[in-house]
Design a protein around this nucleic acid. Structure first.
Lengths: 145, 145
DNA sequence: CTAAAACCTGTTGACACACTAGGAAATAGG
DNA sequence: CCTATTTCCTAGTGTGTCAACAGGTTTTAG
């Protein structure tokens, strides 16, 4: 029941891009340094974000990435769902996949469906802007007693 | 973000024990046959349930397992939490574990905390009895057109 | 005494995760 | 045009966990 590093890194990168959107394009080198992540590993994850159209990449010197939309127009759910594959707690619930043959008499399928809904409802109502706002608020904690 | 087979099997076993509680002790051989699971693998999982006091085992011929309490006195959350280790979406939130040193300025910790709460609230309010009731209702589906 | 069951310990194969490695293609600045 | 910088692409690798198997020991009803 864990979110993988892949999902967490993607989210942190998106937050980082939002926070530094005023400074033009952001390089992965900078993101990796600020977030203390492997740049090479980040490349793979961000490429996925780029192919899906969540971020826009520009090659060459002075190149880098930027968000494709405003932070308020991303939900955490869509970011995680993209890189994690699916937020479904069991495979039976995945859209494309075949459901198992015991679904018709399954004792637990309704419970999993409910859990899936609870998770997607929650994460689908948190925007990237919400996370950034909270990040800015928490940044002050370092100076609190 | 998946529940492992370990958690799902544990739950199915608990449901099976509840459903056959009227027939005295239930052997793992029967559970494995009914649920189509590896008996040896089940043994490991059920031993864990037994050590934690969720089920009561009796050795020897005519032996087997039974629930330690009434089905309504188990929540799905406690069963899954036991065998899965934790339902926390990130390690930082686990009770015993050390939280990471960036928690004080973490952008996403509040979001993960909220997700954890949503999940445990949902699963903590579903009892084993609820699942069994639903299972009995769904069992009729095989005969529906 | 025997067989059936829970209990215990170790091993294994497969697979995904979290990276590492080494480039190729594009492009701004000189 | 040349070079450095950056994204983009493909492949490999070590580690660990999951899921299951294997082979017992202990308990106990009949």
């Amino acid at each position: 029941m864990k979110i993988s590093t892949r999902g967490r890194y993607a989210l942190r990168t998106m937050v980082d891009l939002a926070q530094h959107s005023g400074e033009g394009l952001v390089t992965l080198k900078d993101v990796a340094a600020r977030q203390d992540l492997s740049q090479k590993y980040l490349e793979q994850i961000v490429t996925q974000l780029s192919k899906a159209g969540l971020v826009k990449g520009t090659r060459g010197p002075q190149g880098g990435y930027k968000l494709a939309r405003a932070p308020k127009d991303y939900t955490v759910a869509e970011i995680l769902e993209l890189v994690e594959g699916s937020l479904a707690p069991v495979e039976c619930l995945e859209a494309d996949t075949n459901q198992c043959d015991r679904c018709s008499s399954c004792a637990t399928i309704d419970m999993w469906t409910g859990l899936y809904k609870v998770v997607t409802d929650y994460l689908g109502n948190i925007t990237l802007e919400d996370v950034v706002r909270r990040a800015d608020a928490n940044a002050g904690n370092d100076y609190m007693i």
